[in-house]
Design a protein around this nucleic acid. Structure first.
Lengths: 194, 194
DNA sequence: CACTTCCTTGACCGGACGGTCAAGTCGGCG
DNA sequence: CGCCGACTTGACCGTCCGGTCAAGGAAGTG
């Protein structure tokens, strides 16, 4: 990998990441060899190691970039909304929309979370996201719109709902985002009871 | 692997599974070699292949056995309870209790779900569990104690809450099961709102 | 003791895979 | 044109690891 890259180089680098992401999503990280990645692009193996120091580094960059992009989208969606409950709702919807646009990342993130090497990064990303949610929850508790329970546990629970519905309906079945989002929101806000 | 095993053989087989489970949980499946497993038991490599056809087969059996055990525990807990809402609650509590007793299985299951080879088995297990939950939800909707929404989505949402709280509080922090269970249940039933 | 069956050993094999590198190509610039 | 540095090639290497197997106990039976 080089720090200086010509526009042509930037292009190649992006190609490698995109191509690797597709293969990682289809077959998994370990079963996809560096040889597979460069073959899919029709280039020699040296190209890979010109842009990345290792296969690990590529995945690490991919995770970093995707997390950054997701967070950006969440923040844009929430904007300057004042109502904490509504902020949580907008965050949930933005997350589902993002995974709808980037379905291939779900499996990769899921895997990375189970791998000793990448788990710390994923754990950190999750912590940050949880911390955001906690802030909104605390605001809601103070103003009385959210019931007084451990905000961290509530945040984890919301994340669980979103993750599972994303997997089952956005990634696996590609159902309409709004439909899934409506249920994710109503379940998180009001639970099961009639 | 043999179909006929003496008591001594059964013992060895169990030792191998237990030992492998510990190592898989600590270091992950791929990074744990067969050589590691037999070394941890202080025996030769041939022992492994006397009891199992492959490393894959051992993991498959481990997953099958753990799933069977978890389901048994859930069914025992639910027993003959008639109230659907209460049945769901008992199922949630039983699940959290089981993972409290078998923390090492969580990471293994999580990983297996991301691996092409084992994902189908895990998907099937999950489907069965979801189907159980759906039955209780439909009962509840009919009798009016649960609101009228897509029961499958509700079931997935509940599973998401349980999985995430299990990971964060039972597996990672070993907090009191009852405390976590109380929140999992109240969140699932009543959501966030005050 | 002889004989079988169950179990154990550990050196060895084959192949896959991450990573290296000497050699070459290409495009731009003076 | 000549040169330089950005890129590309693909054969090659070392290692690791799942899996094999010929040989050797040990335990039970007659």
């Amino acid at each position: 990998m080089r720090s200086k890259l010509t526009p042509r180089g930037q292009e190649r680098r992006a190609q490698l990441i995109t191509c690797a992401a597709r293969l990682f999503a289809e077959r998994g990280y370990h079963p996809t060899s560096v040889a597979d990645i460069v073959a899919a692009l029709g280039v020699g193996k040296g190209v890979f190691y010109w842009y990345f120091a290792s296969k690990e580094e590529l995945l690490a960059e991919l995770l970093k970039a995707s997390n950054h992009d997701l967070r950006k989208r969440q923040q844009q969606a929430i904007g300057t909304e004042a109502d904490p409950v509504r902020r949580i709702e907008l965050g949930i919807r933005a997350t589902l929309e993002w995974f709808h646009l980037h379905r291939e990342y779900f499996a990769i993130i899921q895997f990375a979370a189970t791998d000793e090497t990448f788990a710390p990064v994923l754990a950190r990303n999750r912590e940050i996201s949880i911390a955001d949610t906690i802030r909104h929850l605390k605001d809601g508790i103070v103003e009385g719109s959210i019931r007084d329970a451990d905000p961290e546990m509530l945040a984890q629970a919301i994340h669980g709902v979103v993750a599972e519905l994303t997997r089952a309906y956005i990634v696996e079945r590609d159902e309409p985002v709004d439909h899934v989002a409506d249920l994710a929101v109503s379940f998180s806000l009001d639970g099961l009871r009639a």
